[in-house]
Amino acid sequence: CHSECLGNCSQPDDPTKCVACRNFYLDGRCVETCPPPYYHFQDWRCVNFSFCQDLHHKCKNSRRQGCHQYVIHNNKCIPECPSGYTMNSSNLLCTPCLGPCPKVCHLLEGEKTIDSVTSAQELRGCTVINGSLIINIRGGNNLAAELEANLGLIEEISGYLKIRRSYALVSLSFFRKLRLIRGETLEIGNYSFYALDNQNLRQLWDWSKHNLTITQGKLFFHYNPKLCLSEIHKMEEVSGTKGRQERNDIALKTNGDQASCENELLKFSYIRTSFDKILLRWEPYWPPDFRDLLGFMLFYKEAPYQNVTEFDGQDACGSNSWTVVDIDPPLRSNDPKSQNHPGWLMRGLKPWTQYAIFVKTLVTFSDERRTYGAKSDIIYVQTDATNPSVPLDPISVSNSSSQIILKWKPPSDPNGNITHYLVFWERQAEDSELFELDYCLKGLKLPSRTWSPPFESEDSQKHNQSEYEDSAGECCSCPKTDSQILKELEESSFRKTFEDYLHNVVFVPRKT
């Protein structure tokens, strides 16, 4: 048989008469490798580009789960590009990614509803959504962080984005990388972005840091009482949809009607710091009717980097990364020049730590249904340095008659930039024990000054392991946590139920 035959053949030295091919099969003959313009397919066939392209389009058009959109890589027609490569849609070739590779997620039936953290986790790592997304989240724990972890990498949506009755959302900033909504599939009414009845939605994105392009379709905003109209108009300008909307697409009466839409800028007039305090004062603000001013709200939190936005980490279910302080308005003076500047002394802060701070007014709604208010920009203030805590785990070892090696770990709280350490030492008198000992005694162990690591005695271990207080009263049991108490109650309830079950099964009433 021919060298490319495997198993047997019907005619000697003829690659077209093989029972099976050793390498690849091409047009009725066995070959060692697939010549151009053919590609290896499933490690035994040679196919042309049209064959591989037909497989790709067949799966793409069917949208069946589990099928493969075949691509070409290293002269092979394979189910998908290997790690580190992405497909070129024009020629199906796998090309190296520039940075992290995109991950295209194809949605069944063309859309997916995100109504819980669990459903959001199914899209973790996706960068391109081939379909439409509907966000409908009523509640949950730590929602802002969970949504950002699972949806934060999405850069492109081919269909539309719909935010509907998501009472738990305060902001859409968890879509931190969303840059493009194509609108290839539109919501009824030709809408590519749809926001309806979101009672706590206050911000779409921080438009000073976020760009969003909507290729096709219109915007729809109705019944978002805490979303200011200025935020919607800003989205029109940034996304390129200005002029597409009709009169009733953006409701003037049901958007922002319960919001404090600040239209003035508060400026800080005085800032002073110490290692654990920050004193702030800002310019006074009074609405047209000074009785509408209820006070100020001061927001602050630790910020290692200057990239904080107002609604980071917030949701309507209680999660809030900001510390909020309510401040009463100052006494009002008739003389504008003698107006008191409101302020606040922030206490209990960490030394040498940068804080993000902003302040906003708290006002009631005027009778004319106009909203007044003022808010400052987010500023960054760093507390002063102070003395560091003591170095940890000092170790001293003498390696000769004239040297001592000293080692330690950095302090747990540096409280500033540590530039150097101060080492103090003092000579001590020799131990009298060394002169009084009889060095001729056998088995004498000389006193040693070398360091030995501390260890816990058996008594201390027994005390720590004991669940009861000892007789001397030195140790006591740790208080039980809520989960331990709940577990004990469940076990007790189970024992009672099981005992009742045994009584009912074992003891049967005697027939009379």
Rank of each mutant, 00 (worst) to 15 (best):
residue 103 K to W: 04
residue 103 K to M: 04
residue 107 L to A: 09
residue 112 K to N: 02
residue 114 I to H: 01
residue 120 A to L: 07
residue 121 Q to G: 04
residue 121 Q to V: 04
residue 122 E to V: 13
residue 125 G to M: 13
residue 127 T to D: 04
residue 133 L to P: 00
residue 133 L to T: 01
residue 136 N to I: 02
residue 139 G to A: 03
residue 143 L to I: 14
residue 144 A to N: 03
residue 145 A to E: 13
residue 150 N to T: 08
residue 152 G to C: 09
residue 154 I to M: 06
residue 157 I to A: 01
residue 158 S to M: 10
residue 161 L to D: 00
residue 161 L to P: 01
residue 162 K to P: 00
residue 165 R to L: 06
residue 166 S to R: 00
residue 167 Y to N: 13
residue 169 L to G: 03
residue 169 L to S: 07
residue 170 V to E: 10
residue 170 V to Y: 09
residue 172 L to Y: 02
residue 175 F to H: 01
residue 175 F to C: 03
residue 177 K to S: 09
residue 178 L to F: 03
residue 180 L to F: 12
residue 181 I to Q: 01
residue 181 I to G: 00
residue 185 T to K: 13
residue 186 L to K: 07
residue 187 E to F: 12
residue 188 I to G: 09
residue 189 G to K: 02
residue 189 G to F: 09
residue 191 Y to S: 13
residue 191 Y to A: 11
residue 191 Y to R: 04
residue 193 F to M: 12
residue 194 Y to F: 13
residue 194 Y to T: 11
residue 194 Y to A: 14
residue 194 Y to C: 15
residue 196 L to D: 05
residue 198 N to R: 00
residue 199 Q to G: 14
residue 200 N to D: 07
residue 202 R to K: 14
residue 206 D to L: 07
residue 206 D to V: 08
residue 207 W to M: 08
residue 207 W to H: 04
residue 208 S to T: 10
residue 210 H to L: 15
residue 211 N to T: 11
residue 212 L to S: 02
residue 216 Q to K: 01
residue 218 K to T: 14
residue 219 L to Q: 02
residue 222 H to V: 09
residue 225 P to V: 10
residue 226 K to V: 15
residue 226 K to Q: 09
residue 227 L to S: 00
residue 229 L to T: 07
residue 231 E to H: 13
residue 233 H to A: 03
residue 234 K to I: 07
residue 236 E to V: 13
residue 239 S to Y: 03
residue 240 G to Q: 15
residue 240 G to E: 05
residue 241 T to Y: 11
residue 243 G to W: 03
residue 245 Q to W: 06
residue 247 R to C: 10
residue 247 R to A: 11
residue 248 N to W: 12
residue 249 D to E: 15
residue 249 D to G: 09
residue 252 L to P: 10
residue 252 L to A: 12
residue 253 K to C: 11
residue 255 N to T: 11
residue 257 D to F: 07
residue 259 A to H: 08
residue 261 C to R: 02
residue 263 N to T: 08
residue 264 E to V: 03
residue 265 L to Y: 06
residue 268 F to P: 01
residue 269 S to I: 15
residue 273 T to A: 06
residue 274 S to N: 15
residue 275 F to A: 14
residue 279 L to I: 04
residue 279 L to M: 11
residue 279 L to T: 01
residue 282 W to R: 00
residue 285 Y to K: 05
residue 286 W to S: 09
residue 286 W to A: 13
residue 287 P to S: 07
residue 289 D to K: 03
residue 293 L to I: 03
residue 294 L to G: 14
residue 295 G to M: 15
residue 298 L to P: 00
residue 299 F to E: 11
residue 305 Y to T: 09
residue 306 Q to L: 10
residue 306 Q to E: 03
residue 312 D to H: 08
residue 313 G to Y: 07
residue 316 A to L: 11
residue 319 S to D: 15
residue 321 S to G: 09
residue 322 W to H: 04
residue 324 V to C: 07
residue 327 I to S: 02
residue 330 P to T: 06
residue 332 R to S: 10
residue 334 N to R: 13
residue 335 D to T: 12
residue 338 S to K: 12
residue 342 P to Q: 05
residue 343 G to E: 15
residue 344 W to V: 06
residue 345 L to F: 07
residue 346 M to G: 04
residue 347 R to E: 12
residue 349 L to R: 01
residue 350 K to R: 13
residue 350 K to A: 11
residue 350 K to H: 13
residue 353 T to K: 12
residue 354 Q to W: 12
residue 356 A to L: 02
residue 359 V to P: 00
residue 360 K to T: 03
residue 361 T to V: 05
residue 362 L to T: 05
residue 362 L to V: 04
residue 366 S to P: 02
residue 367 D to F: 06
residue 368 E to T: 12
residue 369 R to M: 11
residue 370 R to H: 03
residue 371 T to Y: 13
residue 372 Y to S: 08
residue 374 A to F: 03
residue 381 V to Y: 02
residue 382 Q to W: 05
residue 383 T to F: 00
residue 384 D to S: 07
residue 397 V to H: 13
residue 397 V to K: 15
residue 399 N to P: 12
residue 399 N to L: 10
residue 400 S to G: 09
residue 400 S to M: 05
residue 401 S to G: 13
residue 401 S to Y: 11
residue 402 S to V: 15
residue 407 K to G: 04
residue 408 W to V: 01
